[in-house]
């Protein structure tokens, strides 16, 4: 049965999208299941070898010439077939939605860096970061709940991650403690808990759970997260802020808060998906024009889930 969108959600999405046709395209695609993307785990196998192996059982393509590790499975799959394949159990690939790969592409992790992944579980982006680091440097992967840590840990083992320290702390608490020491990171991924409006295709439950109060509550929490996270960054360090939601309160509003209160600048992004500019006004709130540099990924622009990415550089160390 087609889940029903709440009137307030429809109103907000109409306001975000440019016209009725744009909204109808959005409304059509969110009721279809997402495509099956995987990411080759280059810590264990090369994209060319994995592609050759998987092509023997599925129709596989590599849609992005500059990112051979990203593969699309075009075959009709049985439920659980991707997760139960031997190549998956051996950690040769990670099942990951294409839009969620964008935050790590924006972060651009390199070997020998010191990186913090603040809300790491279940580990799709964490393992993608480590692939970029080639298991060198150090990644601190943090999450809060023990059950989520168990999933994270299992995924890191499966992918052959050796340079990671898993910590279990509240995100604000961990940043507060780190900021009182000399420890500072080259890069931080802040992929925050959000209202999940972008995940309607894979998780229709979001239709039922969504309400505007949650959006506002999360926005306040996300501003705290970014304020504390920036204190843990080296000068000239990079923080990527991402969500899987469309609501500006959880996206541009958080970036606007950072731009107005901390010594940061926002970077222009170049990602292999169609991105729309960030919004600069929302229900009477005005955001900095710089938030235009944020990247909004809509499901109907890319046949993907919805996502939001922005990249900040810290100009001077925060006290």
């Amino acid at each position: 049965m087609k889940p029903e969108l709440k009137p307030k959600f429809i109103e907000r999405m109409h306001k975000l999208l440019s016209n009725d046709e744009d909204f109808e395209n959005f409304n059509e695609i969110i009721h279809k299941p997402p495509r099956n993307f995987i990411r080759c785990n280059t810590l264990k196998i090369s994209p060319s070898i994995l592609f050759e192996r998987l092509s023997k059982k599925w129709i596989v393509s590599q849609p992005f010439p500059e990112h051979h590790e990203i593969m699309l499975i075009n075959s009709d799959l049985k439920p659980g077939e991707l997760g139960n394949a031997i190549e998956h159990l051996l950690g040769y690939y990670y099942i990951q939605e294409i839009s969620s790969m964008m935050s790590v592409l924006a972060l651009n992790p390199k070997p020998n860096e010191f990186i913090l992944d603040l809300c790491a579980s279940p580990g799709s982006k964490t393992t993608q970061i480590v692939a970029g680091m080639q298991n060198s440097g150090t990644l601190i992967a943090n999450d809060f709940k023990l059950d989520r840590i168990m999933i994270l840990s299992s995924n890191l083992e499966r992918c052959g991650v050796t340079n990671c320290i898993i910590t279990r702390n509240d995100a604000i608490n961990i940043c507060s403690r780190i900021s009182k020491t000399q420890l500072r990171f080259d890069k931080i991924l802040l992929d925050v808990p959000c209202s999940g409006e972008g995940t309607l295709r894979s998780s229709p439950k979001t239709f039922e759970m969504w309400n505007e109060n949650i959006v506002h509550k999360l926005s306040r929490q996300q501003k705290k997260f970014i304020a504390f996270a920036l204190k843990c960054l080296k000068p000239k360090g990079t923080l990527v802020y991402s969500t899987c939601t469309h609501s500006p309160e959880e996206n541009e509003s958080v970036i606007d808060f950072a731009l107005k209160n901390f010594p940061v600048k926002i970077e222009t992004l170049s990602l292999p998906l169609n991105c729309r500019q960030g919004v600069i006004s929302w229900y009477g709130d005005k955001y900095s024009n710089e938030t235009l540099k944020c990247c909004r990924i809509y499901p109907h622009d890319n046949d993907s889930e919805g996502f939001f990415v922005s990249k900040l550089t810290l100009l001077e160390e925060m006290k």
Binding site: E157, G160, V161, N163, I165, I166, T167, I178
Partner: peptide, 8 residues
């Protein structure tokens, strides 16, 4: 920090 695990 509360370390849960290190490495593999």
């Amino acid at each position: 920090l509360n370390i849960e695990s290190i490495g593999i």
